[in-house]
Amino acid sequence: MSSVKIELRKDQIEKIHETCEQFGNSEGELINILHRVQGTFGYLPAEVQEVIAEKLNIPVARVYGVVTFYSYFTMTPKGEFPISICTGTACYVRGAEKVLGEFKKELQIEVGETTADGKFSLSCLRCVGACGLAPVVLVGDKTYGRVAPDDVKEIIGEYQS
């Protein structure tokens, strides 16, 4: 798990408890609870998982097992503007690798990392179902279709102000 310990505030713990209660503290709802909590916190650090495990009365290992199994859950905080490059087959065939390379070069980070100023993070996605627009890049909820390596600077520029 993460090396830096974080201290959860009392209100944050209460918020997690509240979410668990909304789902009846049921371990069958673990995935829904994790979705909701990640939606509020942005990520699921070990400390958050411990609170959930305690509330649902299940081992932390069960929570950790689920968090690490599914790619949608993350234990590291994302940037303010998370950039995701689709590397599904259609995007791959249409040159997603080159677009990804350009993002890495421009932002000076690798996949799974966040820029030092916390502004951008980079990740790869497996198909967003927009194959007609391949290659596809997502910044937050905004979709960019038919992205060429030359467009990368411009896309990043939109969020730098």
Binding site: S26, E29, I31, H35, Y70, S71
Partner: peptide
């Protein structure tokens, strides 16, 4: 809701995922 796992398309895996 799923959470990003290709194998969950398999029906027994999907059911386990539904159970949290």
């Amino acid at each position: 809701y799923g959470a990003g796992a290709f194998v969950c398309g398999e029906e027994t895996a999907l059911i386990h995922s539904m159970e949290g």
